[in-house]
Nucleic acid binder design. Structure first.
Lengths: 182, 182
DNA sequence: CGATCAATATGTCGGACCGATATATGGAAC
DNA sequence: GTTCCATATATCGGTCCGACATATTGATCG
């Protein structure tokens, strides 16, 4: 999904500024399965406005730059609808941590231990975050619960696996290090 | 992790051509947590050769272009080691399918059903694939089992969740569609 | 038996995107 | 009182993907 379509999708739920759109990808409901940076969002919104997919309303602010509030037009809604007809690509999982663990011979076991512990904490925080959101806003739009639940299940599985196999991994790394030292 | 570092890492395990490196990211042991395209790998290898991080050996072939076999130099090994000292970034999960489900009001429930079924099959195939590899090549290098196991756990959790919540999601979508039709 | 397709193997190129940076200010923290 | 964070816009260098170009062999298929 390109950033322009992502922006149209966010605007289909409510009007927003570029800054607010980015926040929805950084912390909001999309954070767990899509991302977009400001450096991509602002040009995408400008282009979408040129194409008549969105309208802009400038709101004066003292000191700060004007707030530009974007709204979806009927043309924009149609473009979003069209983009959603294409077949979705594969899900992508990327992890620099797993890369480091794969090449853990190049690391000190203590560093790996710290990194794994930190990642477990991160994943468990994400689970807690999603669960709290599930309580406050369950059942509004169809699909939202499913999406949130899947994120939760994946994070929980990752945290559980790391917790259960942490000791084994470290034991292997330390015995390998002893082996190399001899 | 940039593509140059990724290439050095692959070459630290064994000599390879650019084409073979890509295959390791498409099907090989790295496929589940890192990717790199040919359009990035070839320039990265050329640049790495210029910097003395790898050496090239051209092997003549009839008809086809020469096979260029790359090998890691001591300088390249040092560069890889240095790159591995940086703190890893967050794990990234991206899913166009979840995006479509989030905006499933724009879709026919039947299409969502098909897409979910296909994705379950894909995840279960990945689990089977990883499990078969775990049997044939377990315990060679420390960390490899851990990485494979985590991939397996995540894919299994995603497949299980989708299987268990598929009916609920579809029920919600169909009742919403009926509601809109009235 | 020709046709089309996948795999092998290199490489270029346009366009998309990220991350850093610039600019400007109010409020909170310490 | 200074440092840091949040708000809010925008640009830009560099990186990377996906598509294309090129060339050949072997397989599948009607």
């Amino acid at each position: 999904m390109d950033v322009k379509t992502l922006c149209l999708a966010v605007l289909s739920r409510r009007d927003a500024t570029g800054y607010e759109i980015r926040k929805q990808f950084a912390e909001g409901p999309f954070a767990h399965f899509q991302k977009a940076s400001l450096g991509a969002i602002y040009p995408a919104l400008t282009k979408a406005a040129e194409e008549g997919l969105v309208t802009v309303t400038a709101e004066a602010q003292d000191g700060r730059p004007d707030k530009k509030i974007y709204s979806l037009t009927p043309d924009g809604a149609a473009a979003l609808h069209r983009a959603c007809q294409t077949e979705p690509g594969d899900d992508q999982f990327r992890s620099d941590l797993l890369f480091l663990i794969f090449f853990s011979a190049l690391q000190s076991p203590d560093k790996i231990a710290r990194l794994v512990d930190e990642r477990i904490a991160q994943y468990e925080a994400s689970v807690a975050n999603l669960k709290s959101k599930a309580e406050t806003c369950s059942g509004e739009e169809p699909g939202r619960d499913f999406v949130r639940g899947l994120g939760c299940a994946i994070y929980q599985a990752a945290a559980d696996y790391m917790r259960q196999n942490r000791a084994d991994l470290l034991e292997q790394l330390r015995s390998e290090a002893r082996h190399a030292a001899e």
